[in-house]
Each structure stands twice: as structure tokens, then as C-alpha cells.
Design a protein around this nucleic acid. Structure first.
Length: 156
DNA sequence: GCCAACGTTGGC
DNA sequence: GCCAACGTTGGC
């Protein structure tokens, strides 16, 4: 089975690729996703071994900062039933979880960020959801060719 | 900080 | 099931 490719958005003030790199085993649960489409991608389609672009949003240099790998497939997100948690949802419970998360492991931080501006200007990256107006999904699928193109840009 | 775009909620 | 109101996202 071919692996799939993804893009994960995160505000670096909250959680950056450097944060992931410095976690134990360089691994962290991607909790807090509260959007059904993004949840369904994680729950139904992500497999161990899939690779993901780590995108920094809402910051001085928005763009792809590196790569991580899905190392644990989806399971219920316990922060969803933790009262007082920022992402608490009263309709989610251990018996009937509404939200799911995967775990990701750091793979590389690019020597330079591939900026949104650059992605928007690149002829091969025009179909990426990140360049489409008003796109707010925090987890999106990416084509292998797009993934490879971005890695090439980030590594040089 | 602004504001357009979007997803969700809830009254009807 | 419609849709207006609302809250959030995220580029700028």
C-alpha cells in the first residue's frame, strides 16, 4: 500500500516544529482538532508511515517548516472530555468519543521555511488547498508530487 | 488589529 | 431543512 501525504497546520506560538523536535522520542499527539473534515482524514485515512508537511500559520513567516511522520494511528482525543480544557467538548466522552487524534514524530526541519508566498508562486503547487482562498482546514491531504516539490525547496 | 471566509448553532 | 447569527481562522 502506498503511503499518503498530508499537511498539518499549527501556530508556532502554540506548537512549532522545534517543539516537536524537542519532545520525548520527538513524538507528540496531535490533539485539539475540532473540525469534522479534519477529524475524518485523521480517523479514516491516516496510516502509520504516512508523511506530513508541518506548516506554521499565523506567524511572521508562514509556510512549511519541515516534515513529520504518522507513528500512531487514530484514537480518541482525551482532551475532548477534560473539563476546563481549551478544547473541551461536552458532547464527547470516553464511551462515545467525538474527536480523534494521531501521534506524529519529527523527521526533519528544513534549513529554510518554504513560505506561503513561494508556494503561491510555484506552478506545480497551485492545487494545494493551502493556496486556495479562505481555506481553514488544519489537516489536508497533499499529493506526493507536491510533497516532493516542497521538500526539494526546503532542503536547498 | 482588521476583516473576509468559513463552519457551527439554533430558532423557526 | 433553511438560513441568520455567531465564533473562529488566518493572511495581511
Amino acid at each position: 500500500m502506498a503511503r499518503n501525504y498530508w499537511l498539518f497546520k499549527s501556530e508556532p506560538d502554540e506548537f512549532s516544529i522545534r517543539d516537536l523536535e524537542s519532545r520525548p522520542q520527538q513524538t507528540e499527539s496531535w490533539d485539539g482538532v475540532r473540525n469534522y473534515q479534519a477529524r475524518n482524514f485523521m480517523r479514516d485515512e491516516m496510516k502509520c508511515g504516512d508523511l506530513a508537511l508541518f506548516y506554521h500559520s499565523n506567524c511572521p513567516e508562514t509556510g512549511v517548516a519541515g516534515v513529520c511522520e504518522i507513528t500512531q494511528e487514530s484514537h480518541p482525543d482525551p482532551t475532548s472530555w477534560e473539563k476546563g480544557h481549551k478544547h473541551y467538548d461536552e458532547k464527547s466522552s470516553p464511551d462515545n468519543p467525538r474527536w480523534f487524534m494521531v501521534a506524529v514524530t519529527w523527521r526533519e526541519t528544513f534549513p529554510r521555511t518554504v513560505t506561503l508566498e513561494e508556494i503561491k508562486a510555484h506552478p506545480k503547487l497551485q492545487d494545494m488547498r493551502i493556496v486556495q482562498r479562505g481555506n481553514r482546514l488544519s489537516v489536508t491531504p497533499v499529493a506526493k508530487a507536491e510533497f516532493d516539490t516542497i521538500c526539494k525547496l526546503g532542503r536547498k
